[in-house]
Write a protein that binds this DNA or RNA. Structure first.
Lengths: 129, 129
DNA sequence: ATTCAAAAATTAATAAAATAGTAGCTCAAA
DNA sequence: TTTGAGCTACTATTTTATTAATTTTTGAAT
């Protein structure tokens, strides 16, 4: 398929999975990321190496040689990526209006009283009342 | 076109694009959806037919024969899909906590005063104050 | 009944995402 | 200085997504 170039360039499922590990450990080599993936999926070492290389090519990771290995480090924080994702989602599904997104969120999840209060507090704290 | 395997997660980019049309027009045949896509992409008739068939196989569309054509209709409302998407996003990126999602949203988008008020109102309306 | 156009069904081609095998480099230890 | 463990680079394969051509079916008009 023609790759969606010029678009927001979000991560694929597997890329995101790997980035989660790196966001968690700060930086890591292929082996360390492989370790961090938690025995479930049992990928081959080279599979991990390939994806990390792709992420580096895409600019999501910086690469620094440490001894023989390459140490990868995110160039984008998880927080920044979260924002990027939300903006993209807002644009595609919610007509670019965060309001609609919030409305949907509080409707669908069955939120506890605590959660509701937390959300209220966030809004109030950010923008005063 | 390889049919998707059992686990029907979220919609792909193109599938979503097509569903948007159907959510907009309520229901439609292949030709009507093709029309609704707005001259931009200029897909072939059969491309549209294939994707709609896939969406039907995935259960996102019901199909009813009308004259010679098949009339497709969403089995899931856009609203419901929005909720599904948010839940998925919340799970993968925000550790399942809507709070974190809202926090990120109000931080990243630069919201107008109006928008902020709207969001506040939504929270207050839904859960009293 | 025959023809024909419009539609569905089938099949195929192309592309991207995901996984991993193979080759070859490099450095430390024997 | 040879060896081999550990690594990257390169290549290959498989699966999924996207697009579309080809074939078959259908039903209405002639």
């Amino acid at each position: 398929m023609p790759r969606p170039k010029g678009k927001s360039e979000l991560l694929t499922t597997v890329e995101l999975e790997f980035m989660m590990v790196l966001w968690s450990i700060g930086s890591g080599t292929v082996r360390e990321v492989l370790q961090g993936l938690g025995g479930e999926e049992k990928r081959a070492y080279t599979s991990v190496a390939t994806v990390l290389k792709v992420l580096h090519d895409k600019g999501y990771l910086s690469a620094k040689k440490v001894n023989r290995a390459i140490l990868y480090r995110p160039t984008l924080s998880k927080t920044e990526y979260e924002g990027k994702t939300l903006k993209s989602l807002s644009a595609t599904l919610f007509n670019g209006t965060p309001t609609a997104l919030v409305a949907r969120l509080v409707d669908d999840e069955d939120l506890s009283e605590e959660t509701i209060k937390e959300i209220k507090d966030i809004i109030d704290t950010r923008f005063g009342r």
